[in-house]
Amino acid sequence: MSRTDAGPTTPVIAVVGPTGSGKSELGIALAEALGGEIINADAMQFYRGMDIGTAKLSVDERRGIPHHLLDILDVREEASVARYQQHSREVMAQVRARGNVPILVGGSGLYIRAALDELEFPPTDAAVRAGLEAEKSKFGLPALRERLAAVDPASAERLGDERRVIRALEVHRITGRPFSSFMPHRVYHQPAVQIGLQVDRDVLKDRLADRVHAMVERGLLDEVRRLDDHGLRSGRTASRALGYNQFLRVLDGIWPTAEAAEDTIAATRRFARRQLTWFRADERIHGLQWHDPQLLAKALGVVCSARPLS
């Protein structure tokens, strides 16, 4: 498929997979081949200054391809899937208006689904939530569970902890609909194709260790120190990011650098396993081997086959 083959019938493309599988590189290659623009779908790459620890591509590494939704949040701000859904769809429409192909790239599964799928986010109301929390303090959680069972049996059976029970009751009180009615379905919001990069687990295990050690050598600790000066600890999302959480402990004198690196490696491997499980559950994803010498050609073939016949 050449650059001129892309057009309005080319679906939205999503390149997904576990961290360290080469998604960014394939995204760039697809964008060069199709006349695409990249839309970030890695929640931690939203944050300004979180570059080394998130493996964010430098400007030179982007090879002139426009990238969107990078560096859009301060480390003190909280990422929101609902806001991302709105912003990503706005950007996709803008990319289409320029005659280009939107290419989502990232491993944050829920953010990918928010951009691609018919996924409705129920509203929130701080006053309603505060009232329910007061009722819980007065009457206890069992009373709230009983009330939830009366209005939303499906959620009552599935949810048990205090936060989720209160959230389900909040949604019902605001909308009059059961919280369970907002559960997502695997239906695309607009024509889309997902390409999932597959990596052997043993290979990925070694790659992730090498990746973390390279981040340390590039100055991850100094990056965390700079971000700490800008309020990293007060950010509910950013402060929990892989590597950043561990290296804050180095700054506090709790851990040596080597221990922080090893804990980051272990945490990153656990995260990659969760990503593999998440993406494996979506049968719509076309799996391709990350190291296949024909990877780009095969990915273009997947995109071409997903286009409707003219």
Rank of each mutant, 00 (worst) to 15 (best):
A261V: 08
I13H: 13
P153E: 11
P178M: 13
M44L: 15
G22Y: 00
D292S: 06
I103D: 05
L232H: 01
G99K: 11
A214I: 06
A214T: 08
L159A: 10
E37W: 04
T4Y: 14
A82S: 14
L148I: 02
A154P: 00
A267I: 05
V128Y: 03
A241K: 00
L119P: 03
V250M: 08
A297D: 14
L69W: 14
A126S: 15
L248W: 02
V216W: 11
R284P: 01
E25K: 15
V16Y: 02
G301V: 10
Q289H: 08
L309N: 15
D263H: 15
L73G: 10
G49P: 10
G27T: 06
V302I: 14
Q294G: 09
K136L: 09
V303N: 03
A281S: 13
A258G: 03
Q198W: 07
K23S: 09
D210V: 12
R167N: 07
L204H: 06
F46S: 12
A31K: 07
A297C: 11
F182S: 12
D60H: 12
D263F: 15
I39Q: 06
A299V: 05
A260Q: 04
A82P: 14
Q198V: 12
L296W: 04
N100T: 11
H185D: 15
D292F: 11
A31I: 05
R207F: 05
A238E: 08
A299Q: 04
G35L: 13
V212F: 15
Q294C: 09
S2H: 14
L251M: 13
A127E: 10
Q198P: 11
G287K: 06
R89K: 05
A82R: 12
G301K: 12
Q85A: 13
G36M: 07
G7D: 02
E25N: 13
R211E: 01
P11W: 06
V187G: 01
E90D: 08
A93N: 11
E262N: 13
E25A: 15
R76C: 02
R98F: 00
M215A: 05
G131C: 06
R233M: 10
L296P: 15
K138I: 00
V91G: 01
R98E: 14
L309D: 15
I13C: 04
G287M: 08
R62S: 09
M92C: 14
V75A: 05
R173V: 04
V16D: 01
L288R: 06
L70R: 03
R177E: 10
N100A: 12
A82H: 10
R163L: 11
M50Q: 03
V250W: 10
